[in-house]
Write a protein that binds this DNA or RNA. Structure first.
Lengths: 329, 329
DNA sequence: CTGAAAGCGCTTACAG
DNA sequence: CTGAAAGCGCTTACAG
């Protein structure tokens, strides 16, 4: 910029005015400055600019894994909202590792992002208190922060499972299995709660071997399901706690002699083309990203009430066939 | 930092040394500085630091759409490599709009990212020349840049289609259809070339109504496929130019009276569970992201030869059933 | 309409 | 071992 000013024979401030299209520059001077800019190939350094203006026009997004379709949809929605507010997006995957999440979050904060959208891993987010106090707007999404009262956008996990399990009960099932993710994950715990509540509401006892929580690796899901389907009183239906579980369950059930009913949490592509097509409780991934990002920018613009907001998005039961199978005799 | 220095009764440079764990500070002084840091809740501003050191430790990633599974996998791989090099990642989706791509790229450059990984949209990337000359390392991925000689990591598109079409021919098909994406997209054009080459290599004539290029919206694919399947000499097999086309084709073909063979470009989840399971030419999305990012950091570290590199990754034919169906009589 | 000075928060290159 | 000065590339708050 100094070089441009020298070449155009003007002061620094005048170059700044031209670059920022501020008024108060004679067309003549502006033209001279522009010529110098072009000749020198000058490109404003936004990092320097933002150091001075104290707003970085950037937002940090931390999620579990960008490669998971659910988070990919959420991510894209956050990006679109950020763009509409003129902000750039830093992204990072925590891989469900609290240490990695913290590293990412603090690295974003050290760059002085204006705000954060975080799918939290782990159960203690007090490390964020100094950052939030320092003015970094922060919205959690999919799961609430641990030991920290902050903005959060959630899916109605328990309600969704209640609806799905009630659907199975309405189709005549009494012995219904549930396979969920690690119980430390908030959404997993909430979904298990929904399962218990739906069973209790129908006056059904839950046998301990009907539900299991743990990593959603194919091997574990496969083993868990096999054990539910064996024994004298096997389950006649399964509620799958997330789309990783559903996919493995479909594989296992397709090799089963008698048909087992299945409802999965979270929709997935091609669910309608499987045989039977898979009934799911669908959550709105883009909707969650959009809500979270909009809440974030409302905060940044000072348009949100001071107390932390808690938004819960509804789910939708999509019946396709697998959830309407009657109990095997 | 000034406040910390004042409180600890030391110079700015000493604070800087403590913060950066540089040697040459007595344990005693360091402790005093650390106490001041804690008391004041000081957190280094990396933006300011990077302004001075002239390296931003950040990389910009521009792709077509993070929500597309192919790019999601690629994206995650770029992120992992960036992390291992201590760099943060800016991401943005171009939505196949050259103007939007340029906006994103230039915004990243204005922040002075060290490098760019770009899935190019459009056919003219000369706007990047000044940035590359100014030292922004740039690697294109999935498609080459338009009118610009730069690093690029590609899939063997034509070769992959040749292999897939040859596979159909080996299973007795002679009238084989091809549905591709917009011909301005490099990968789409290359795949069409592969189709033509495979047919020619087998001495088969290609009727004009057997192939069609255009948007991969379900409606268009549906209509294109319907027309190929009608008439006196309908195709007996289809090569689907990308996974959007494959998915729609599966839907249409499942409602078809006679079985039509299908091979798709790019693998997708649950392809093995469909009936028939779908034979695909699989490309390695994470591998492409990894190669591109590694090439980028090699450039940044001055370890790559000066001339632009061109990396072509192999594909893999995965036979699952749909591609091995014999021609309908 | 225009520009010189000070400063954003840090590091570099020195000197002590 | 320690620190004062200059500077990264820009904007802010003034004064002319």
């Amino acid at each position: 910029m100094k070089d441009v000013a020298a070449r155009a024979g003007v002061g620094l401030k005048t170059v700044s005015r031209v670059v920022n299209e501020e008024p108060g520059v004679t067309p003549d001077t502006a033209a001279r400055v522009q010529a110098a800019i072009d000749a020198l190939g000058f490109r404003r350094n936004d990092s320097a600019r933002l150091l001075r203006t104290r707003r970085t026009a950037s937002v940090g997004l931390v999620l579990e894994d960008v490669a998971d379709p659910f988070y990919a949809g959420l991510s894209r929605a956050v990006e679109d909202v950020a763009r509409s507010h003129g902000a750039l997006l830093f992204t990072g995957s925590s891989a469900e590792d609290p240490r990695r999440e913290q590293e990412l979050v603090l690295a974003f904060c050290a760059r002085r992002v204006d705000g954060l959208v975080v799918v939290p891993a782990g159960d203690d987010h007090r490390y964020l208190t100094p950052e939030i106090d320092a003015g970094v707007a922060t919205v959690f999404v999919d799961r609430p922060a641990g030991r920290l009262n902050a903005d959060v956008v959630l899916t109605d996990n328990a309600g969704g499972v209640r609806e799905g399990v009630a659907h199975l009960i309405a189709h005549g099932h009494r012995r219904i299995g549930f396979i969920g993710d690690l119980p430390v994950i908030h959404t997993a715990a909430e979904r298990l709660r929904g399962y218990r509540e739906a069973m209790a509401a129908a006056g059904l006892q839950v046998a301990p071997e009907w539900y299991t929580m743990g990593p959603t690796t194919p091997d574990r899901v496969r083993a868990a399901l096999a054990s539910m389907l064996s024994g004298p009183e096997p389950v006649t239906a399964l509620f799958a706690g997330n789309n990783r579980v559903t996919v493995t369950a479909v594989r296992v059930l397709s090799g089963q002699p008698r048909p087992i009913a299945l409802v999965g949490f979270d929709d997935f592509e091609l669910a309608d083309l499987l045989d039977p097509a898979v009934t799911v409780v669908a959550q709105d991934a883009p909707g969650m990203g959009r809500s979270a990002a909009q809440l974030l920018f409302r905060r940044l613009d000072g348009l949100a009430p001071p107390e932390p907001a808690r938004v819960v998005l509804p789910v939708r039961l999509i019946t396709r066939g697998s959830g309407e199978l009657p109990p095997a005799p």
